[in-house]
Simulated scan of single mutants.
Amino acid sequence: MDLEKKAIERIKLASEMSMQYYGKPLVCTYSGGKDSDVMLELFKRSGAQFEAVNSHTTVDAPQTVYHIRKKFKELEEKGIKCTIHKPKLTMWQLIEKKKMPPCRMQRYCCEYLKENTTPNRFVATGVRWDESQKRSKRGIMEVPGAKIKDRITLMNDNDDKRLLIERCEIKGSMISNPIIDWRHHDIWDFIRSEKIEYNSLYDDGYKRVGCIGCPMAGKSRYKEFRDFPTYKRAYIRAFDKMLIAINEAGKKTRWKSGNDVFLWWMEDENIEGQMNIEDYLNQ
């Protein structure tokens, strides 16, 4: 069975389980990136009932926001429910509240802005094994746990745990990853062969489409801030407010200004430095 057929079969199975155990359609998460566009096309071809959901992070590039709106408008015209979750706090407000910059080891932004927006639902994501070593441990279907060791991976040579789902003994959210075994070139081959409209940022040299300034993006952040200087200024203002909040809390820091924080943050490739971020806050 080829990749497209396998992915569609996974979507159909997850859709049936969603309706049976949750009484609601399967949720297709949509970020505005290439994997999300492939997912939407596969969902439409599957004929399964579904809803599309986007988590608005407040730090997406304008091109991404416009692309999401356009795709959702097309879906809604076909009678498919689409929802854009807008957080109560923006990234800038979140930085001030947390009193620390978002880092690889302190990804509070993902938890607040992107995760947990569809509680108690069966959700399909565009996670793929070849994106990172961490994601290579993900399964085709999962039951999330607070800790990695507590997660249950399904349909991955684990029949006993799969039965747990089929008996509906698990409460809360469930996750399906229909394109988990697709490689990078598979995604682009499908997009080009099927003439799927994608985010214009890829034509501007971007390898990934996500939050502007995400520490996980590595050196590509320099290009992001060159292309979107307004976001750089917004981060620096947020860091300034963060320092005020730190001082008002009776703490001290080695940083003197928001720009100091930004310069340190942009060198955020040192994992040890991220883990010891407390060193920058003298209690």
Rank of each mutant, 00 (worst) to 15 (best):
residue 194 E to N: 14
residue 212 I to Q: 10
residue 183 R to V: 08
residue 155 M to G: 06
residue 64 T to W: 07
residue 223 K to N: 15
residue 138 R to Q: 07
residue 275 M to Q: 12
residue 264 W to P: 06
residue 183 R to A: 04
residue 152 I to H: 03
residue 93 Q to G: 06
residue 3 L to W: 11
residue 234 A to G: 09
residue 36 S to F: 08
residue 228 F to N: 08
residue 96 E to M: 04
residue 128 R to L: 01
residue 128 R to W: 00
residue 278 E to F: 15
residue 38 V to E: 12
residue 177 N to I: 06
residue 226 R to L: 14
residue 94 L to H: 07
residue 72 F to I: 03
residue 211 C to D: 09
residue 273 G to N: 15
residue 230 T to P: 08
residue 125 T to A: 05
residue 117 T to V: 12
residue 203 D to I: 00
residue 254 R to Q: 09
residue 152 I to E: 04
residue 242 M to P: 10
residue 56 H to R: 10
residue 55 S to T: 08
residue 167 R to K: 10
residue 8 I to A: 05
residue 86 K to F: 07
residue 14 A to F: 07
residue 267 E to K: 15
residue 135 R to Y: 01
residue 55 S to W: 05
residue 165 I to W: 09
residue 199 N to E: 02
residue 135 R to V: 00
residue 199 N to R: 05
residue 235 Y to I: 03
residue 4 E to W: 11
residue 158 N to R: 10
residue 210 G to E: 05
residue 205 G to D: 13
residue 243 L to F: 08
residue 163 L to I: 10
residue 203 D to C: 02
residue 240 D to Q: 13
residue 182 W to V: 00
residue 181 D to P: 01
residue 144 P to Q: 02
residue 52 A to L: 07
residue 231 Y to Q: 07
residue 140 I to W: 01
residue 148 I to Y: 04
residue 196 I to H: 01
residue 63 Q to K: 08
